[in-house]
Design a binder for these strands. Structure first.
Length: 275
DNA sequence: AGAGGTACCTGGCAGC
DNA sequence: TGCTGCCAGGTACCTC
């Protein structure tokens, strides 16, 4: 589920229930996630959440003494539960790994079948955490431009799709939107990053921004019940041009969309519209 | 330094 | 119905 737009949607969904609320208790049912949930996560108990933000696909909830860093991995979600999980009426679902009991009688549940995500705790400013410190710019920031991509990619032989999915280059471009943005920009995903022109990168940066912005907007339409559900896989599916459309006609030229594995990830493109 | 592959984990689905 | 194999939205880390 979670590409950047879904993480952003999740953040917006949980914010009203978390911001300026006190964490009354934290229950860890399964600490063995992508990284072990640290014991000292309990230091966040009785702390008020003063700030909520997103960095790439990480969600950061900061208290006065440290920050909770959350990542949803491939299959993670956060949902707001009511009544609080300590209530016997509360239904614990399989793969509910971490629960936060909040002031205001709500709880936030971290659910993640594949356990590729994690929940961490740091007393340092979150941006100094090893996982966050070396991240590239936000794709929706002014810092992220075609010129930036062009400069970063010189002499790089890696496929341009892998290049834009590298979080040290730019954060938040996942497998779906990498294919989509490259289609919109007319660039073959397997092309060496160092051989893409400055003009093409200008277009690519623009399309990355626009496809992510559009997806966040469409995530907004399901915002109301997002945190109560498991998320809405496919709610933006009608707007996808290439992802998952192998064998179907290109919406632009009518030729058949192709699928190829690049960097061990499924990749979709139109060999006529992309060069 | 850079490129490429591996690992983590569960569930859903196609095919037999 | 049940088994097997393959695929899945992420990304740090290991090896060459």
């Amino acid at each position: 589920m979670p590409e950047l737009p879904e993480v952003e949607t999740t953040l917006r969904g949980i914010t009203p229930y978390l911001l300026n609320k006190k964490i009354k208790a934290i229950t860890v049912r399964q600490p063995q996630l992508r990284w072990l949930v640290p014991d000292d996560i309990h230091a966040a108990e009785n702390q008020k959440i003063l700030r909520l933000e997103r960095r790439g696909k990480y969600i950061i909830a900061s208290t006065g003494i440290g920050s909770i860093i959350m990542h949803l991995g491939m299959s993670g979600s956060l949902r707001i539960a009511d009544p609080k999980f300590a209530d016997p009426k509360y239904e614990i679902r399989k793969h509910d790994h971490v629960m936060f009991e909040l002031s205001g009688s709500k709880s936030m549940i971290y659910h993640d079948p594949r356990r590729f995500g994690s929940i961490l705790w740091t007393r340092e400013p979150a941006e100094q955490h090893p996982l966050l410190a070396a991240l590239g710019p936000e794709p929706l920031s002014d810092e992220f431009t075609g010129n930036y991509l062009f400069q970063q990619s010189r002499k790089k032989k890696v496929a341009v799709k892998n290049f834009i999915m590298n979080s040290h280059v730019v954060v938040g471009v996942g497998n779906i939107y990498a294919s989509e943005a490259l289609f919109r920009a007319g660039i073959r995903p397997g092309k060496a990053a160092g051989r893409v022109t400055a003009a093409a990168y200008g277009l690519l940066a623009t399309e990355i921004k626009s496809v992510l912005t559009a997806a966040i907007k469409s995530g907004g339409t399901t915002l109301r019940d997002f945190v109560n559900s498991e998320g809405e896989p496919g709610y933006f599916q009608q707007t996808l041009n290439v992802y998952g459309r192998e064998g179907e006609p290109c919406r632009q030229c009518g030729r058949i969309i192709k699928q190829r594995t690049i960097g061990q990830r499924s990749t979709f493109f139109c060999s006529h519209c992309q060069s």
